[in-house]
Computed example of a mutant assay.
Amino acid sequence: MMKYTGERVIPDLMKPANSLLLEHLARYQFSSYYMHGRALDIACGSGYGSHMLAKLTKKRISELVAVDSDPETILYANKRYNHQKVRFHCEDAADPLLPQKLGTFDVIVTFETYEHVADEQQLLANLYAMLNPGGTLILSTPFGQGRGKPCGQPFHVHQLTVEEFHDLFPQYSEVKFYRQIGVLIEPPRPDQKYPLGIAVCTK
């Protein structure tokens, strides 16, 4: 059994009403409506979300590749969340060779990943290269003081401002922005402050 570190979401070690767990489940539920063809979950963690997507969309996806950089986490995911349409791999999201290793996808989801990656430009380049033309990228990240500034989270490189987040996706043909507070995911309202943003990008 994996140990709960406070950063990884491990449903078996958390109460069903845990707010962090519910927030993560909400993002996977949200992304399930976009799933089709060959899909990729970057930074899949313990694997519960990849398994959830596979169960919800098994008639619409051909394969779901789930990637995380920690070998122990991938071992746990393979044992606990095995599914006939899910393939777990231990890979670095910012590896320049990742597109060659994994190929291309119709949908890519990556939740709470960006803030952990020092080489953010390589991560963004990988995501774009692995997405098929017309494909959909769904990316979430928490907001903070901005690029290069301390954020108080020991596992985060930094946390972007809203404006910096909006500037990440100029190469995509269409980008829709959403905000999340608790389990609520909605288009941003000017009278509401949100801790986290979600981008739905079409290549």
Results as ranks from 00 to 15, higher is better:
Lys59Met: 10
Lys59Thr: 15
Lys59Arg: 13
Lys59Phe: 04
Lys59Leu: 09
Lys59Gln: 14
Arg60Pro: 01
Arg60Ala: 13
Arg60Met: 07
Arg60Val: 02
Ile61Leu: 13
Ile61Pro: 00
Ile61His: 02
Ser62Asn: 11
Glu63Cys: 11
Glu63Lys: 14
Glu63Leu: 14
Glu63Asp: 10
Glu63Asn: 08
Leu64Val: 12
Leu64Lys: 12
Leu64Cys: 13
Val65Ser: 05
Val65Asn: 03
Ala66Met: 08
Ala66Gly: 00
Val67Thr: 03
Val67Phe: 06
Asp68Lys: 06
Asp68Tyr: 06
Asp68Ser: 03
Ser69Val: 10
Ser69Ala: 13
Ser69Pro: 00
Ser69Met: 11
Asp70Cys: 05
Pro71Asp: 03
Pro71Met: 08
Pro71Leu: 03
Pro71Thr: 07
Pro71Ala: 04
Glu72Ser: 12
Glu72Phe: 01
Glu72Val: 10
Thr73Gln: 07
Thr73His: 04
Thr73Phe: 01
Ile74Val: 15
Ile74Asp: 02
Ile74Pro: 02
Leu75Ser: 14
Leu75Trp: 02
Leu75Glu: 13
Leu75His: 12
Leu75Met: 02
Tyr76Leu: 06
Ala77Tyr: 01
Asn78Phe: 03
Asn78Tyr: 02
Asn78Gly: 13
Asn78Val: 02
Asn78Arg: 15
Lys79Leu: 11
Lys79Glu: 11
Lys79His: 15
Lys79Tyr: 07
Arg80Thr: 15
Arg80Phe: 08
Arg80Gln: 15
Tyr81Ile: 11
Tyr81Glu: 05
Tyr81Val: 11
Tyr81Asp: 05
Asn82Thr: 02
Asn82Phe: 14
His83Pro: 01
His83Glu: 10
Gln84Leu: 11
Gln84Phe: 09
Lys85Ser: 08
Lys85Phe: 12
Lys85His: 12
Lys85Pro: 00
Lys85Tyr: 11
Val86Asn: 07
Val86Arg: 05
Val86Tyr: 03
Val86Ser: 04
Val86Cys: 03
Val86Pro: 00
Arg87Gln: 15
Arg87Ile: 14
Arg87Glu: 09
Phe88Thr: 00
Phe88Arg: 04
Phe88Ala: 00
Phe88Val: 00
His89Arg: 15
His89Tyr: 13
His89Trp: 09
Cys90Lys: 07
Glu91Trp: 03
Glu91Gly: 02
Glu91Phe: 12
Glu91Tyr: 10
Glu91Met: 12
Asp92Tyr: 04
Asp92Glu: 13
Asp92Thr: 02
Asp92Gly: 01
Ala93Phe: 06
Ala93Val: 10
Ala94Leu: 04
Ala94Glu: 13
Ala94Val: 09
Ala94Met: 04
Asp95His: 06
Asp95Trp: 02
Asp95Phe: 06
Asp95Pro: 07
Asp95Val: 11
Asp95Gly: 03
Pro96Gln: 05
Pro96Asn: 08
Pro96Val: 09
Leu97Gly: 14
Leu97Arg: 07
Leu98Tyr: 04
Leu98Glu: 05
Pro99Leu: 03
Pro99Ala: 11
Pro99Val: 10
Pro99Cys: 05
Pro99Thr: 00
Gln100Gly: 10
Gln100Thr: 06
Lys101Trp: 06
Leu102Lys: 00
Leu102Asn: 04
Leu102His: 02
Leu102Trp: 03
Gly103Gln: 09
Gly103Asp: 12
Gly103Val: 13
Thr104His: 12
Thr104Lys: 14
Thr104Ile: 08
Phe105Arg: 00
Phe105Leu: 03
Phe105Gly: 12
Phe105Trp: 01
Phe105Gln: 05
Asp106His: 11
Asp106Gln: 10
Asp106Phe: 01
Asp106Glu: 14
Asp106Ile: 05
